[in-house]
Nucleic acid binder design. Structure first.
Length: 311
DNA sequence: TTGTGTTTTATTGCCTCC
DNA sequence: GGAGGCAATAAAACACAA
């Protein structure tokens, strides 16, 4: 009697106790069981549907047939074998619950009672079913969101990789041109040629930076080049090698000057880099400027929009 | 038949709201 | 403080390959 009362209040808090008692019941079946679990005598499982039937009283639950068929007259034997056997809901019950869930996935107390009556279940079972159903829905939604984000990430990653390739290509090109320039100067190093060449390279760099108008840093570079130009005659006078080194380094500097605008990635740990590449990147994570694809960049670097897109 | 992975039912503990 | 929701988890039921 006491056991039955406790079970009604909090059925599975006494799970282990019940297990022990169930073992005792196996030894002395009827005496112990009927004494300790009156609510379970004739019950269908660990939760008794009888309560619902009694409560509803007036109406016959829609799915009583299922319960009877399933649990029939073998209840006692069944219970001895599986004192806490779980019962899956029937297909009809699940369909009914599904429809109800589609209409509204939250359960008001009145609706819960009504559903329990209709289905011949405990209100608590209905509540649990809805709870688990919401959890399943959430899991599905998370999976769906993950797939969407992953697809988006893959596209971005692919674009990014292309930009890196293009950038490396361009960088190599600039380096080889610089070397050519250096060779030409050492072979026939007349001052007029040097003048022309240096003028050209200077214009190139100034043009490069001027085309990025919004980026003040490159303007500073242009000023630097003017200073360099002013000082070049001195360099001719002293050592031609100094001058040519200056041209080459200036060219490279022009290329590498873009590095000045990127955040210091060296501060990122390897782990962080890994995380960035492994995890789903949020849309606001952009590639470094050095990795920007220059393939569509006009030779004159006049396409400002291109240089500013990643900001 | 059996081992193993997945799904379903249910519990527990914590949190929020009234 | 009680009711209800949720996340984490347990455990039974089920599916399926070997």
């Amino acid at each position: 009697m006491v056991g039955g009362l406790l079970l009604r209040i909090c059925p599975l808090r006494f799970k282990r106790i019940k297990l022990v008692v169930a073992l005792l019941c196996l030894l002395k079946p009827f005496s112990f069981r009927s004494l300790l679990f009156p609510s379970l005598v004739g019950s269908r499982s660990m939760v008794s549907f009888e309560d619902v039937h009694e409560v509803s009283g007036l109406t016959t639950p829609l799915f009583c047939a299922f319960d009877r068929e399933r649990n029939g007259g073998d209840d006692l034997d069944e219970y001895f074998r599986h004192p806490e056997k779980k019962r899956k809901l029937s297909v009809d019950q699940v369909q009914f619950l599904e429809k109800s869930f589609e209409a509204e996935n939250k359960l008001e107390p009145e609706r819960k009672i009504q559903l329990a009556k209709d289905l011949g279940l405990q209100p608590r079972q209905v509540a649990i079913w809805f709870q688990n159903r919401r959890a399943r829905l959430k899991t599905k939604q998370v999976d769906k969101d993950y797939e969407t984000l992953k697809a988006s990430y893959d596209t971005l990653k692919s674009d990014y990789d292309n930009l890196v390739k293009e950038k490396n290509k361009l960088k190599a090109e600039v380096e080889s041109l610089s070397k050519e320039l250096l060779l030409g100067q050492t072979e026939n190093g007349t001052s007029s040629e040097k003048d022309t060449l240096s003028q050209e390279s200077q214009e190139k760099q100034v043009g490069y930076s001027a085309s990025e108008g919004e980026v003040s840093k490159l303007s500073i570079l242009a000023c630097k080049q003017e200073d360099l130009s002013a000082a070049k005659s001195e360099m001719f006078d002293s050592e031609s090698q100094h001058y040519t080194d200056g041209v080459q380094s200036s060219l490279l500097e022009a290329v590498d000057s873009s590095y000045a605008f990127e955040p210091d990635h060296s501060q990122l740990s390897q782990d962080e880099d890994d995380n960035v590449s492994k995890s789903i990147l949020p849309p606001y994570v952009f590639p470094k400027l050095e990795d920007v694809d220059c393939s569509n960049t006009p030779a004159s670097f006049e396409d400002h929009a291109f240089w500013s897109w990643s900001y």
